[in-house]
Simulated assay, not measured.
Amino acid sequence: MLTGLYAALCALLIFALSLRIALLRRKLRIGIGDGGDAGLARAIRAQANAIEYVPLLLVMLLIAENNGASVAMVHACGAGLLLARVLHAVGLSGSAGVSFGRFWGILLTWALLLVLAGQLILGFVAAVQAG
């Protein structure tokens, strides 16, 4: 149930990133690709990067929640996911190079991948041992 909240918030983030692309395409009159425009290319990558990570992390979070993860853990991971993807999108939107947002956004995303993977593996092991 809690994962649904974070799925909805991540969906709003992806919608905002998608709308940004559409508005840039209209302004620049570029229908497909980035037309060589660096700003549009970064906007496309910011949205694509969210699309690459958000679904997997939400599935992992939902499984962890359904397996009995604490409310605090689900909220921490869900809020962390949203923060990570906002940081990354803002950082990438401003610069294709190294930035605070890109660095901390991807670092937090990877940390969440590892934390949730560990949670799910430990849950699996406990279930197998319980019979």
Rank of each mutant, 00 (worst) to 15 (best):
V54M: 08
L83T: 11
L120T: 08
R45N: 10
L107P: 00
I51F: 12
L92C: 06
V71Y: 12
A79K: 04
V86K: 00
A127W: 07
S95W: 04
G35M: 04
A69D: 02
I121T: 15
L114F: 06
A127R: 09
S95P: 02
L58I: 05
N49L: 03
A69P: 03
R26Y: 09
A96I: 01
L61T: 01
L24I: 03
A22T: 14
L92G: 04
L28W: 03
Q119V: 14
A79V: 07
W110F: 11
P55K: 13
G78R: 02
I63S: 10
F100M: 13
A72L: 10
V98T: 12
H75N: 12
C77W: 01
A127E: 13
N66M: 14
V74D: 02
R102W: 00
E52T: 04
L82A: 08
V128R: 14
A117E: 06
E65L: 07
A79I: 04
R85T: 10
L28K: 13
A50M: 08
V115L: 14
V54K: 08
I121L: 15
Y53Q: 11
L23D: 11
I121N: 12
G101E: 12
I51Q: 15
L58A: 02
F100A: 13
V90K: 02
L116V: 07
L92E: 08
T109A: 12
H88A: 09
V128Q: 14
I32Y: 10
L81I: 05
S70F: 08
V128K: 11
G123Q: 09
C77S: 09
D34S: 15
I21Q: 14
L83F: 12
A41H: 02
R26S: 14
L120V: 07
A41F: 00
A96D: 15
A84N: 09
S95M: 03
L56F: 09
A72K: 00
I63G: 11
V125A: 14
G97V: 03
A48K: 06
G118H: 02
I30A: 11
